[in-house]
Each structure stands twice: as structure tokens, then as C-alpha cells.
């Protein structure tokens, strides 16, 4: 079997396992969602049964499982208990908002993180390196929600001037598409800064450590012996090899971000996946939660799959061994 086909097969099997696990996880946790929806003990048994049916919670667990699988294959993610609308609509909106936040912050974090990391790593043991490491460690140890709250306080209360909540200004009237984009961009600034401050530090440390290791390799001495400029040495020979652990870190990072920039989204009321998950937990909105987990799982699997393909291009040794 060609390796690519095998990987896709493994991907599908993993996905199936995750879907199954997800389903049972949510159905064995204690608490009856119908009681929560009914909000009263005084509902007639036949009415309870009707409610149960309408949310697909009747029948044995196994029956429910196969019904869930079949619905899933038809693209039906169920109906939200708390929001009273199809889960796919809810998820679609939230995912889009998270992707906007994620794309902007990931690009900034990865690019800036790598640049500073290479800067520090190629100056191993010098003052610039130590200063970068110490600063990064300080920023890395800052709690995300705390940084967010500090920014909310600074820009919302103290200085003002930047929106601290939501993705658009409520009741705003836009005269053009550009107006709208600018409004979203302004709302993006603080959440992005919050994510970036902590996460850039993570990428700086990973890149720097990886590059320091690589700079000590024999082939770096060869590169120096060849009379290459420092720049060529560091980027073409050093960074190209140091990139592999950085790529792994990026995948983990993207996976973590989808599930949530939960802290950031809650602090800034950014209507994305993190905030949705958070609210769904509070409301015991199982269909939405199931879908959130599913989306997260798919993104994690896809990111890993993508990384695998990139790895093969970056490191010729990987392509042979697997």
C-alpha cells in the first residue's frame, strides 16, 4: 500500500475512534439534560418522553450511538439544547471567528517567534541570547487570562481607544465592506496581543534551543569551513535543520489554539470555539460540546497529517524510514 494511502486510512480510523469515544464520554457523564431543559420537576412523563425523543435521547445507548453515527454521516450534528438552533450553524459561526483570530495570531507568533529565536540561538552564550531567554521565560510564565485582563483594564478603563469585547461594535452601521473589516481588525488587536505575548515566548524558546543544538553539529563546522557568510550558515544550514522541532511545536500550538484560545475568548468575549465550549459546558449543551470536541479532533488530526507531509519535504530521512 502506498504510504500516503496508509496514512489517510490511519487518519480515518483515528477519527472513528474519537467520534465513538466522544459519544460515550458525553452520555455516561451524570446529569440529565432533559431535566435541565424542562427546568422543572412538574413536567408530565409523556411530555418528558416527547422532549427526549425530539433530542434523540430515547432508546438504548447503542441505538442512540448508531443514530448519532448515521446523522453525522449526513452532516447533521444535532440540535443545540440551549441555543435552540442546529449545531452546525452554531459551530460554523464560532469556527469562522476562531479561525480569524487564530490565523492572525499564529502568523505573528510563528514568524516573530522564529525570527527572535534564530537571533538568540545564533548568538548562543552572548548577552543578547541570555537577555532574550530571560525575557522569554518571564513572558512565557505569564498567565494568559491575567495578561488579557490587564489589557482590558488598560485599554478599556485607563487609556481607552481600543475595543475590549466582541468581534464587532454592537449596533454599528457600516457604510462599506472596508468599514466592517476595519471594525473587526480593531477588535482583533487586543486578543491577538494577549495570545502573542505569551506564545511568541514559547516559539522563541523552542527555536532558540533547537538552533543551539544544531549549531554544535559537525556539519555547521563544515559550513563555516566552506567560507560561507554567517547569514547563509545560520539560515541555510542551521535553521533548515532546527526547523523540525519548531514544526512539531507549531502543530501542537495550532491544535491547542482551536480548542481554545478559551481564556482569551472568554476574557474578550470573542464569539469563537473557546467561548462556545465554555458556555456549552455551563449549559450542559451536549450536542454542541460533542461537535466542539469533534471539530477540535479533526483539526488536530488534520494538523498532524499536514505536518507529516511537510516533514517529509523538510527531512529526507523521514521519507525513507516510514
Amino acid at each position: 500500500m502506498p504510504p500516503l494511502l496508509r496514512r489517510i486510512l490511519v487518519l480515518l480510523v483515528s477519527l472513528f475512534a474519537i467520534v465513538t469515544f466522544n459519544f460515550f464520554l458525553f452520555h455516561v457523564i451524570p446529569g440529565d439534560p432533559i431535566r435541565l431543559i424542562a427546568r422543572t420537576q412538574k413536567l408530565a412523563p409523556d411530555q418528558v418522553e416527547k422532549l427526549r425523543q425530539s433530542f434523540g435521547l430515547d432508546g438504548s445507548l447503542i441505538e442512540q450511538y448508531f443514530r448519532y453515527l448515521s446523522n453525522l454521516l449526513h452532516g447533521d450534528l444535532g440540535y443545540s439544547f440551549s441555543l435552540k438552533e442546529p449545531v452546525s450553524d452554531v459551530i460554523g459561526r464560532a469556527l469562522l471567528n476562531t479561525l480569524i483570530l487564530l490565523t492572525v495570531s499564529t502568523i505573528i507568533v510563528v514568524v516573530v517567534g522564529i525570527m527572535i529565536g534564530v537571533f538568540a540561538g545564533s548568538r548562543h552564550g552572548k548577552k543578547a541570547d541570555s537577555a532574550t531567554v530571560v525575557t522569554s521565560l518571564i513572558f512565557w510564565s505569564l498567565p494568559t487570562f491575567w495578561v488579557g485582563m490587564l489589557l482590558v483594564f488598560t485599554f478599556g478603563v485607563w487609556i481607552g481607544g481600543l475595543p475590549i469585547s466582541g468581534i464587532t461594535t454592537p449596533n454599528a452601521v457600516y457604510h462599506s465592506g472596508i468599514d466592517y473589516v476595519m471594525d473587526v481588525a480593531r477588535h482583533l488587536i487586543l486578543p491577538t496581543i494577549t495570545l502573542a505575548i505569551v506564545d511568541i515566548a514559547f516559539f522563541i524558546i523552542i527555536t532558540r534551543t533547537s538552533l543551539v543544538d544544531v549549531m554544535g553539529e559537525d556539519y555547521m563546522l563544515t559550513a563555516r569551513g566552506k567560507g560561507l557568510t554567517r547569514r547563509t550558515m545560520v539560515w541555510k544550514h542551521g535553521f533548515r535543520n532546527a526547523l523540525l522541532p519548531v514544526l512539531t511545536a507549531s502543530v501542537l500550538y495550532i491544535s491547542a489554539l482551536v480548542a481554545g484560545a478559551i481564556q482569551v475568548e472568554v476574557v474578550f468575549s470573542w464569539p469563537g470555539m473557546g467561548l462556545l465550549t465554555y458556555n456549552s459546558v455551563l449549559a450542559r449543551d451536549y450536542p454542541v460540546l460533542e461537535a466542539c470536541f469533534l471539530v477540535t479532533a479533526i483539526v488536530v488530526l488534520a494538523a498532524n497529517f499536514g505536518a507529516d507531509l511537510v516533514y517529509r519535504r523538510l527531512d529526507p530521512r523521514v521519507a525513507v524510514n516510514t
Partner: peptide, 25 residues
């Protein structure tokens, strides 16, 4: 100045070529 001399005038066959070649090129 040294860069123009290195490899152009004086090259080196390093100890243990296993690691002296860059694995990704």
C-alpha cells in the same frame, strides 16, 4: 578575508563524515 581563503585555498576533510555532511541537502 578568511572567508575567501576557506575552501577556496584551504579545505578540510572533517573527522567522521557521517555528521560532517548536512542531512537535509
Amino acid at each position: 578575508g578568511l572567508r575567501t581563503v576557506r575552501w577556496n585555498e584551504i579545505s578540510v576533510v572533517f573527522q567522521g563524515a557521517l555528521n560532517a555532511l548536512n542531512p537535509v541537502h
